[in-house]
Amino acid sequence: MGLWDDVKDLGSAAVNVVEDVFWAPTKIAKWVLGEMFGDPDAELEKYAAELQQMGKDVEAFGKEISTALSHLTWHGPASDAFVAHAQSRVKELNTVADELDELGKAIKGLADAF
Rank of each mutant, 00 (worst) to 15 (best):
M1F: 12
M1D: 13
G2L: 10
W4H: 07
W4F: 11
W4Q: 08
D5W: 08
D5F: 08
V7H: 03
V7A: 12
D9T: 12
D9V: 04
G11H: 09
G11Y: 06
G11T: 12
S12V: 07
S12I: 06
S12Q: 14
A13L: 14
N16K: 15
N16A: 15
V17S: 14
V18R: 11
E19R: 15
F22M: 14
W23N: 10
A24H: 14
A24W: 15
P25N: 09
P25W: 07
P25V: 12
T26F: 14
T26Y: 12
T26G: 05
K27E: 11
I28N: 09
I28P: 02
A29Y: 04
A29T: 12
K30W: 11
W31G: 03
V32G: 10
L33K: 05
E35T: 04
M36R: 05
M36G: 03
F37V: 15
D39N: 14
D39C: 01
D39H: 01
P40M: 05
P40Y: 05
D41N: 07
A42R: 11
E43L: 03
L44I: 02
L44M: 14
K46V: 03
K46A: 08
Y47K: 11
Y47F: 08
A49I: 02
A49Q: 05
A49H: 01
E50T: 01
E50K: 08
Q52Y: 00
Q53K: 11
G55W: 09
G55V: 03
D57R: 01
V58N: 03
E59I: 00
F61S: 07
G62L: 03
G62H: 02
E64V: 02
I65N: 01
I65G: 00
I65W: 06
A68Y: 00
L72A: 05
L72C: 03
L72W: 01
G76D: 08
G76S: 10
G76C: 10
S79Q: 07
S79F: 01
S79N: 04
D80F: 02
A81M: 14
F82A: 12
V83N: 04
A84V: 01
A84D: 11
H85G: 15
A86T: 07
S88L: 10
R89V: 05
R89A: 07
V90M: 04
E92G: 12
E92M: 13
E92V: 11
L93W: 08
L93R: 03
L93K: 03
N94F: 09
N94G: 15
T95H: 10
V96S: 11
E99W: 14
E99C: 09
D101R: 15
E102C: 02
L103R: 09
L103E: 11
L103N: 09
G104M: 09
K105G: 09
A106L: 10
I107P: 02
I107C: 00
I107K: 04
I107M: 07
G109L: 06
G109Q: 08
A111P: 04
D112Y: 01
D112T: 13
A113T: 07
A113D: 08
